[in-house]
Write a protein that binds this DNA or RNA. Structure first.
Lengths: 225, 225
DNA sequence: AATTGCATTCCTGTATACAATTATACAAGG
DNA sequence: CCTTGTATAATTGTATACAGGAATGCAATT
């Protein structure tokens, strides 16, 4: 599978707006004006327009014809739903990874786990951001290792989406440690080519994350405003 | 939730190209030139560009920077993967639908089923296209009824994607009849508010479709060129 | 004071113009 | 005959220009 790199403005603008939404610079229901953004990024409206259209399809932006583009709100229920869906798919992903994972990917998983454990054992305390990034990386490698571009695509989208409402990343230290231990178990199962075990552990892993989320008021019927 | 209608060219161009890909007018790896398409549709390159960028995100088109846009190939493995994923999610959808479905949606499901059964019992033989459309409609209503825009979005995307490779729509009459009976069972379970049953039936329904697919050479490791 | 009508201004939607990149054709050299 | 270099054409990427809705402000009216 060949990969092509995109040096175009269009792509960079897309990424930039995306980040700014995820970072919270643009908040829910903020209006995204083509001219304003274009001026900020030093480009014309054209690339901005394209980026906004794409972001709409990604679900991050809502476009009302002839009126403008607005940041799409992500409710707590949305996030809950995503985790619920993930709890049905991460297991499938792990199962497939058992068959398709490469040595390089196994090494990469091992590395992120080592780094995670290192972070958690630091005297000076751990960086929440770092640990979150490593968590994301672990799952991203696993998605890739599933050997299914379809499954990988879906799960990656979900990850990005959840990342947006970073409210959800408020995890306790206890949960972080437990999460890493669960990752280690999953990796072990994959190494031992135990598909059944890997699947079960991966699904349970998400369910455990959800239990933590529930404490923070996330659940199925949370309407929120 | 308000809905806004889009009378713009951009939207129409998007739909048109989309259809042409799904209809098979543009085939796998065909190059989609902005000028050519624009001339055909009587618009400038701008709306065409936007449409192509969106289609890329939908997975129907692959854009190589500075080179062009190409119709994305969908392998048999992709389709297999999608059904595999659906077999894990349709059940969840049915389960949620038990809680959220409205009377109107129940009626709509009933109607599609009646029409399907009518089609199958016609003396003159049934229209494959009609039955396929009704099948799609049944599932679409169910997705909507889940009350989860996230789940609905994912499953709808999958449906569109599979529809593209219409190879998969080659179903036997026997399978068509069985499929409709399974739909009826699912509807009954939902009406009786039996979430457990609805979930199980919906997942099994997809697995049955997959069994039929397998006969046609679809499976996990089908590389196909 | 609230509401309607209208003009102005702003913003989006589309077309066109120009720049940058890539593909193509063909000739020169090995 | 195949490779390489170069000029030309074709195509994409971006900026700008113009047309058409939508929002805003203000005055006139009730």
């Amino acid at each position: 599978m060949e990969e092509y790199q995109d040096h175009s403005l269009s792509g960079r603008v897309f990424q930039k707006i995306r980040e700014d939404i995820l970072n919270g610079k643009y908040k829910e229901n903020d209006e995204l004006r083509e001219n304003t953004i274009g001026r900020e990024l030093g480009v014309s409206r054209t690339p901005v327009r394209e980026a906004l259209r794409q972001l709409e399809l990604e679900g991050l932006v809502t476009i009302i014809p002839n009126r403008g583009a607005y940041v799409t709100g992500i409710s707590r229920k949305d996030i809950w739903d995503i985790y619920m869906i993930r709890s049905h798919l991460e297991g499938l992903c792990a199962r497939w990874a058992v068959q398709h994972i490469t040595e390089e990917q196994l090494d990469a998983l091992e590395e992120t786990l080592m780094l995670s454990e290192f972070q958690m054992n630091k005297e000076s305390g751990f960086s929440v951001q770092q640990v979150a990034a490593l968590d994301g990386r672990f799952h991203a490698i696993l998605y890739e290792a599933s050997g299914s571009r379809i499954l990988s695509h879906v799960l990656t989208d979900f990850h990005n989406y959840v990342q947006m409402a970073r409210k959800s990343s408020i995890v306790s230290e206890e949960r972080a440690r437990k999460s890493i231990r669960e990752h280690r178990q999953i990796l072990r199962a994959i190494k031992e080519r135990d598909a059944e075990m890997a699947e079960q552990l991966a699904n349970e892993h998400i369910l455990h994350v959800m239990q933590n989320l529930k404490k923070q008021g996330y659940r199925a019927e949370t309407a929120e405003k």
